[in-house]
Amino acid sequence: MSQGNNAGIGLEHVNVWFGEHEERVDAVKDAGFAVPFGGSFGLVGESGSGKSTILRAITGLAPDWSGKISVLGQDLGQDRGKEFYSAVQMVFQDPYASLHPRQTVDRVLSEALSLHGFDTINDRIIKILDDVGLDQSFRFRWPHQLSGGQRQRVAIARALIIEPTILLLDEPTSALDVSVQAEILNLLTRLRTERGLTYLMVSHDLAVVGHMCSEIAVMNDGEIVEVLSVEDLRALKANHPYTRQLLDASVQKRKNE
């Protein structure tokens, strides 16, 4: 599946909806953007704007969609094969909900490896724990013995242990304290450089997305209202009124003084 060319993720005229007939809710309307291979792209919006739904459509968790989604140059159909899952992995928002309460760290990681037929399971687990900055003593702990930040590291380890090329990040730090957020964001930045990963990150926090991504799409009410570079975002050069409103709200907190 891996291709040398520039294709990471591409969306064209994508609609996603839930329910049928009168109960149909259009969560994403005519969305389109492209993430180059090795790039890092951010989706920003408030709750209900459809930003997480786009990730769910890419991974197949939201089954009702139309339009064109391509990953690494290949168009996706309704079903995702093993090949897709070994290339694309996801980190979820709430580290308290994304780890199985009755599985140790070791079990979570070895399950991922055995699903993808990796050998040398032991060595790989030791290495990935090291990579995500967890001491080896964490290997046999249960989730309830871990803090939020440690859990999120385990979730990142689970996604990366099968060596994907694309990582989807669904608000990976919104449930964490700011000091822990800094650690996780630094970890994600380092892993991207080390492994040449492609990131597609969803967040409600402009500052976080501005820190992590080089290009940002702003979503409102299911539509992408504006796509802008991080330089424009930092210079507060937004064209769409909604983007400006968001920028105001997040910068104003500091400017109030």
Partner: peptide, 10 residues
């Protein structure tokens, strides 16, 4: 989410 996660691992 933890069931989604394992589903996404194939």
């Amino acid at each position: 989410d933890f069931i989604h996660a394992i589903k996404l691992q194939g």
